[in-house]
């Protein structure tokens, strides 16, 4: 699959990245080369192979769950301590619409 500047612009929008013109040009060539390299996997026949999504092999998927009891959480003050713009116990953002 060929990566064009148009693909890069579409992906940048999906990733919420405003790329500069220079970045768009540079990423077009580099992503094209890297994605072609990814295509090497097509040499392998994986029709009968199960996908592997994690490496906790053989573990009971619920083994690490704790008892459902209430424990203290971070609290509003600590959670807001790094906020660029806190206000009235919330995170403030520019207008949405």
């Amino acid at each position: 699959m060929e990566i064009t500047k148009k693909t890069v612009e579409k992906i940048a929008a999906l990733a919420s990245l405003e790329l500069t013109e220079e970045e768009k040009e540079r990423f077009t060539g580099q992503m094209d080369a890297i994605v072609h390299y990814f295509d090497k996997l097509n040499e392998l026949n994986t029709d009968e192979v199960e996908p592997m999504s994690h490496s906790n092999l053989g573990d009971d998927p619920t083994a690490s769950q704790r008892e459902d009891v209430l424990i203290p959480s971070l609290g509003t003050e600590a959670a807001l301590s790094n906020a660029p713009q806190p206000g009235a116990g919330h995170f403030k953002v520019p207008r949405v619409l």
């Binding site: 990733a15 919420s16 990245l17 405003e18 790329l19 500069t20 959670a79 790094n82 906020a83 660029p84 713009q85 995170f91 953002v93 520019p94 207008r95 949405v96 619409l97």
Partner: peptide, 23 residues
Amino acid sequence: GVRFGFRVEGAKTLHEMYQKTRD
């Protein structure tokens, strides 16, 4: 740019803030 870390100044909308902050 919402809950922690760097946020770009002067963005007019939320989406513009996301894109510019991340770039």
